[in-house]
Simulated scan of single mutants.
Amino acid sequence: MPRVTEEHREARRAQIRAAALRAFTAKGYQRASISDVVAESGLSAGAIYGHYDGKQALFAAVAEEVLSRRGSEIEDASRDGSPPSPLEVLTLLTGGMTRDLEDGRVLVQLWAEATVDPVIHDVVQEVVGQLRGVLLDALRAWFGTRPDLAPDGPDAAAQLLIPAMLGLGQGFLMQRALLDDFDPDQYLAAAATVLPA
């Protein structure tokens, strides 16, 4: 029997996570079942349970993947030597979530589940902690180019702005998921009036 490589296993896990994201988006976390993930993936239940020990673990893996991609995008935007501004960072965050998630409902569900489910809560804490680290690096680099806006130093200025950046990102996603008349361009234009430039 041929050996299954780690690359093959990760490709299968990615296939399962993508199917789970579709199922959770379509039905919601509470109503979606592993059977729905099976139907979306075309795999057997055994294949799914061979990688994830249940719906909760799968939901956590999906959330971690979606949220951690944002960190990678922000890091990539900083590699050219010109750090992105706070508005550019917010645009990267919201743009990536818009690409990854049909309408953002699954993140609203994730945040709700994190208030009652300790496993999901821990996943959110870990992923947001990673995102804060990425934001700190990006904002610190940007404030380093704007000492006029960072009288106490780039680190202090970045630390001060991070909670507002997270709030603006969550506000974007929450309104996008809940409001029929949400205008993402108008939201970002409003954010531009409050973020340092």
Rank of each mutant, 00 (worst) to 15 (best):
F24P: 02
P151E: 10
G96A: 11
G71A: 07
E73T: 05
A45E: 14
A77R: 05
D155H: 06
V116N: 12
E64C: 04
A177M: 08
A19Y: 05
A138G: 01
Q56W: 01
V4I: 15
A112V: 13
E6I: 14
A156W: 02
A189C: 03
A11T: 10
G133L: 01
D103A: 12
L195D: 04
A197H: 12
E102I: 12
Y187W: 15
A11R: 14
Y29T: 04
Q30Y: 07
T5G: 14
P118D: 13
Y49Q: 02
G50A: 11
A26W: 06
S33W: 09
L110K: 00
P86N: 06
V116L: 15
L135Y: 07
E6S: 12
M165H: 01
D155G: 00
L43T: 03
L21K: 07
T115C: 12
Q30P: 00
L149K: 04
R69S: 10
T98G: 03
A77Q: 02
A190G: 09
M174R: 14
I16M: 10
A189E: 15
R99G: 01
A61S: 13
L107H: 00
G54E: 07
R132S: 09
D36M: 05
L21I: 01
L173V: 09
M97G: 14
P154N: 05
Y49W: 06
G129M: 07
E75C: 03
V62L: 11
L58K: 03
G54S: 05
E126S: 12
P86R: 03
A32T: 04
P83L: 10
R99T: 11
V134A: 11
I34E: 04
S78M: 10
E88F: 07
E7A: 15
R105C: 07
Y49G: 00
T193Y: 09
P196A: 08
P86Q: 07
